[in-house]
Amino acid sequence: MNIKLRAPVSAAIAIGVGVVVLAGYFIPSITNIRFALLRTGLVLAAVALLVGIINLLSVHFKKMGSDNENSGYSLILVIALLLTLVVGIIDMVQSYMLGQPNFQMTNWIFTYIQLPIETSLLAVIAVSLTYAAASILRKRMDLFSITFFFVILLVLLGSFSIPSATLPFLHVIRDWIVRVPALGGARGLLIGIALGTITTGIRILMGTDRPYGD
């Protein structure tokens, strides 16, 4: 069944729900309505995850069928996804039949496949960040970049705390940087982001921005 809501209807629903949830944040009397809408939203968000997984599968199925040079990776992804799904279902059935949790296979996949992979990826990020810090002066040789470069060095050295090789004043400098300039800058950025967030939300509530389609 293909249900298509016309733009005014979908926009009215989106705006109405948004206004109620926002008002419920400030007006306690409509908290229950807000809560009901939030619960509905949670279910939809969970379903959206399933829809996203299906989309992921369909996209990589298409890539497998084409002459894409990365079709091999798509094949691995699809196999891994289906295998994990089957293992999870088996674990759930076993837990239901045994009456106690039994997620050995799922934990094994997570512990020995996903966790090492993602940890290694984070380690690569460390290398990438180091490289980015080292090459920033090549990209932009200006006052801000030079400041950025030396602040990185000071904060890292301030974190270095092997007793025999630690310079005490570096800890003080690091703490000062973290508490004063970094915090002040972060606050300023967060205020700007908050203002941007408010205007974005208001535009959505006004219906001028409609990411839910026209």
């Binding site: 968000a45 959206a48 995850l49 399933l50 829809v51 996203g52 997984i53 989309n55 990411p211 839910y212 389609g213």
Partner: peptide, 11 residues
């Protein structure tokens, strides 16, 4: 993100 994926396709 799944939701953003749906919204992106809608957009």
């Amino acid at each position: 993100n799944a939701v953003i994926s749906i919204l992106a396709q809608d957009t």
